[in-house]
Design a binder for these strands. Structure first.
Length: 523
RNA sequence: GGGCCUGUAGCUCAAUGGUUAGAGCAGGGGACUCAUAAUCCCUUGGUUGGGGGUUCGAAUCCCUCCAGGCCUACCA
């Protein structure tokens, strides 16, 4: 059994700048990892970049760079974005790393020796310009290959194949008997049907004459391995699989199996739902060591797919610059149901930030602290209360918020979890209206009640900060700092009564300044 | 062609086959002054895409049609 919770993300291809979809997946996984830390469970968060392949090689040529130079230039953009967005990973999987190359070659060598790989010729139509074999899918209505493919020649080429179809029946049985293999459940259905149609083996190599930017096959120096046995292997190579004891990589048995591979719906079939489990199975991993696939949806732009060619790709770095990291992280986690698609809208980003963080949570913090300072010099009094509304808040709503939040987070439903946290703040705003501390302050006989109300507000805010901390680490620190609480957020501390009698609160400073809409274009 | 998903209030979304289909935002009305022109209360608003069927009971299950999205394949 692993002693650390291990999360991975898809590794991003270093051929273009990151867009909002890349940012979403990494923030989502960062939030899951931070929740584990909040629960004081050791966690290892691996993410990275896929740097090999034909597109990188071609793009590098166009810019007059070596493939490595080009890949590293692009990698730097991803790394900079993760730093900006507060994505704090433990391991960085860059596929040009020598230790990754070593693991890939050891794996290929083993499979080759075991007869899982074989060499075979393939005859087909080949586009010289695009450097790829064409299938009937590429034919136009007239049944011909259009001019976009340039010169098309009939060509025979030898390659290495992985015996994928030999494991088809195993995979079907595995999917049928492991209902949590794919989350959400409806994706498992989709996968099941796709596997049924599976036929043929998997081509895993390219001759160096066509593609040189890759990892050389250990048993045939004329070839490099093609994407699958390079990119997918990152999940185990960077976790220390088949590594030498002094490699500096993690101890593999302390991580494996990963709790979840976080991926987008576009790479479930066939890569992660078919190739990857079969690769692991062929390597001898038992069924209980095949990780869950957590499949997230996409951010669309006004209902349609985001793409560079449509010119509607959203730049996450620009958004973070314009609205702040907290606003962006909050929006990405709150406005999509994990596994589903959502529509990206800057207007909704502003609305949700203003309504839920600025007006609700931020203003609650500000008004609560102001009253505590105005009426009590910032000193809290903790005393037993018999007031029904306060008991309802402490034993009812606060308790329920923490429970609902925890359950939702355990099921990767970040949006539902945030609702619970914000709901507790809402209950506090209601309490302020119904108890009217400004009236209590004028009546000496209500001194005890006023103290109790102020204490309940501060204590609730402490809980809200703890619950928000995986999504909004900085802002949560900000709330706790204003409450004058220096403890590192822990879920075990999210129980009522943490603030001691006589606690001195900090100075209120508006935490979430409202976002203003950009000037609208003249009609 | 095959597969999967979605369709519920103006918008974004909830509702293990079980009260009168809910919440936030937006709209309308009111209250309050501690606070970031914030907050709180009340309120308008639905033929659950259409049509059949099963059931004591359907947004939910079955059939069918319509609309949108995604994956995948061109086999008879």
């Amino acid at each position: 059994m692993p002693d650390r919770t291990f999360f991975t993300t898809a590794i991003d291809y270093t051929n273009a700048a990151p867009h909002i979809g890349h940012a979403y997946e990494k923030v989502l996984t960062d939030v899951l990892a931070r929740f584990e830390r909040l629960c004081q469970r050791p966690v290892y968060f691996l993410t990275g970049v896929d740097q090999h392949g034909q597109k990188v090689q071609q793009s590098a040529e166009k810019e007059g760079l070596t493939p490595l130079e080009f890949a590293e230039q692009c990698t730097a953009k991803f790394l900079a974005l993760w730093k900006t967005l507060g994505v704090e990973f433990d391991g960085w999987a860059a596929t040009t790393h020598p230790l990754h190359k070593q693991a890939v070659q050891r794996i290929l060598q083993r499979l080759f020796e075991e007869g899982q790989l074989y060499k075979q010729g393939h005859r087909g139509f080949y586009s010289v310009r695009q450097e790829q074999f064409l299938t009937d899918k590429e034919r136009n209505e007239a049944g011909e290959f259009g001019p976009e493919w340039g010169q098309v020649v009939e060509l025979e080429e030898e390659n290495y194949y992985f015996r994928l179809s030999a494991h088809k029946d195993w995979l079907l049985a595995f999917i049928d008997t492991h209902e949590h293999f794919v989350v959400p459940a409806f994706r498992r259905l989709e996968l099941r049907n796709a596997v049924e149609r599976l036929s043929g083996d998997l081509c895993i190599s390219r001759p160096k004459t066509r593609l040189s930017w890759g990892i050389e096959l250990p048993f045939d120096s004329e070839f490099v391995t093609y994407v699958w046995f390079d990119a997918l292997i990152n999940y185990i190579s960077f976790a220390g699989y088949l590594a030498d004891p002094d490699s500096g990589l993690p101890e593999f048995r302390s991580l494996w199996p990963a709790k979840a591979h976080v991926i987008g719906k576009d790479i479930l079939i066939p890569a992660h739902g078919v190739y990857w489990p079969i690769m692991l199975h062929a390597l001898g991993f038992p069924d209980e060591e095949i990780p869950t696939l957590l499949v997230h949806g996409w951010w669309n732009v006004s209902g349609s797919k985001m793409s560079k060619s449509l010119g509607n790709a959203v730049d996450p770095a620009a958004l973070a610059e314009r609205y702040g990291v907290s606003a962006l992280r909050y929006y990405l986690m709150a406005d999509i149901s994990t596994g589903r698609d959502a529509d990206f809208s800057e207007e909704r980003l502003r609305i949700r930030f203003n309504d839920e963080l600025a007006n609700n949570v931020g203003n609650l913090l500000n008004r609560s602290l102001n009253m505590a300072h105005r009426y009590r010099q910032g000193v809290l009094r903790r005393a037993a209360t018999t007031d029904a509304d306060l008991i309802a808040l402490a034993d009812g709503e606060a308790l329920k918020a923490v429970a609902d939040y925890t359950q939702a987070m355990e099921h990767y439903q970040i949006d539902t979890a945030l609702e619970a946290a914000v709901g507790l703040a809402r209950a506090c705003n209601q309490l302020i209206e119904s108890s009217a501390p400004w009236k209590l302050a004028k009546d000496p006989e209500q001194a005890g009640r006023l103290d109790a109300v102020l204490y309940h507000l501060a204590e609730s805010l402490r809980l809200v900060a703890i619950l928000l901390s995986p999504v909004l680490p900085e802002a949560a620190q900000g709330i706790l700092a204003q409450l004058n609480v220096s403890d590192v957020p822990r879920l075990t501390a999210a129980v009522w009564g943490g603030l001691p009698d006589g606690h001195l609160l900090g100075t209120p400073v508006p935490l979430f300044p409202r976002l203003e809409a950009p000037p609208t274009e003249a009609d």
